[in-house]
Amino acid sequence: NNLKNFPKTFTRLQNLREISIQENQFVALPPELGTISTLVTLNFDHAILRNPPPEIVDRGLEVILHFLRKLYDSRQTGEVDLKGLDMENLVAGEVWTTQIITSNVTKLNFKNNRLNQWPVFMCERISTNIKSLSLAGNKLRGLPIVFGNLAGLTKLNLSSNHLKALPASFSDLSKLSKLKLSNNEFNLLPPPVNELPALRTLIAFGNEFTSLPAQIANLSKLTFLDLSTNQLQTLPPEIGALTALSDLRLSHNDLERLPPEVGGLEALTCLHITHNRLVSLPA
């Protein structure tokens, strides 16, 4: 045969146990296949298939159906949840990623894969409707210089990677209200972070900060700041400008003193300062 598209009507046959579609021209399997729980055999031509990607196809029918079911569910939930699928290389996935990330999708979850880079096309071609993105638990060492194109983001999780810096365009994420940078390799708070006007939650524990920049005062809407388990030796007096701050976590650092300006944080309801080198507190 010379079929190019899998007939979606076949996916309504919920008692199917075996499908053979070899010697056709299919480049994609429909997400609806993931809803057929009775399927035990699926024969197709691996060479030309682009969706699912090879690293999913090579792991057998169970993983293929799990992947397709995730794509199917995204149409109802608006979330593409592909966490924990060990998809190491998205660079080769331009075809399938741009097909599945449609205008109704607002959340992307690529947590706990083995991604070593976030492709440029994922910043340039996916919908600006994306509000939430998780890239936690991967092997990222950097982000594309055009990462700021994801201007619709309000929540971003970059925890548990190998990041040491962020691109300048990161400051274009003007709607970002929650940012997780924990367990990376930053030795200073990346400058673009100080230019995020909507930021309310910043979680950056488990890095290598020794100090904070005075520009942190720009984050006037910040209500939650977690800098635990760094190497902080001092805090700038400008931290007193964070008048909306209600929760400040500084445990497991090397602080010997707190600036008097901390006493002016009148919205503060939670202050964690255990496991430092403090010998006194501001009067």
Rank of each mutant, 00 (worst) to 15 (best):
L49W: 08
L250R: 01
Q233L: 07
L265I: 07
V80F: 02
F110G: 06
T223V: 06
L133T: 05
V27T: 15
T11R: 02
S169V: 08
K164D: 06
A244Y: 05
L115H: 11
Q14M: 08
T106A: 15
F110D: 02
V91C: 15
S132H: 11
P260T: 08
F205L: 06
P190K: 02
G263D: 02
S280W: 13
L71A: 09
G264R: 06
L61G: 09
L196A: 01
N5L: 10
G34S: 11
L235Q: 01
K221H: 10
L16I: 10
P30W: 08
R200E: 14
N149F: 08
K178Q: 07
R59Y: 12
F10N: 05
E94F: 10
K175C: 11
N253C: 05
A241E: 11
S159D: 12
L3V: 09
G137V: 04
E88D: 11
G142N: 15
A283H: 13
L166R: 00
L71F: 03
L222C: 05
S37G: 08
F209Q: 00
P213G: 06
E62A: 14
P119M: 10
L115Y: 09
N2V: 00
K180A: 06
L65N: 09
G142S: 15
S211Q: 00
L196N: 00
P197S: 02
A241I: 00
N187C: 12
V95F: 15
G78F: 04
P197R: 03
Y72R: 14
P54D: 15
L143G: 03
L232Q: 00
Q233Y: 06
K8L: 08
R141Y: 10
L153Y: 04
R125W: 13
Q14P: 11
A151C: 12
I100K: 00
L49Y: 10
A168I: 01
L227H: 03
V279F: 13
K175V: 05
E32R: 07
S246N: 15
L13C: 12
L232D: 04
R141T: 15
N51Q: 05
V146S: 15
N194K: 00
F121V: 03
T234F: 03
N149P: 14
A47Q: 12
N183T: 12
A136F: 07
G84Q: 10
G93E: 02
Q99S: 15
A92W: 04
K175M: 05
I56G: 03
S177G: 07
K178R: 11
L202Y: 06
K107F: 09
P282A: 03
E62K: 12
S182M: 07
F147S: 04
P191D: 05
F10R: 01
L227M: 10
I64A: 08
K180G: 03
S177N: 08
K111W: 07
L268S: 08
A198P: 02
S160L: 11
D58S: 15
T223R: 05
K164R: 14
N138M: 08
V146E: 11
P7F: 08
G264A: 11
D73E: 15
A92H: 09
Q99G: 07
K180Q: 05
R200H: 08
Q14W: 05
N5A: 14
G152R: 03
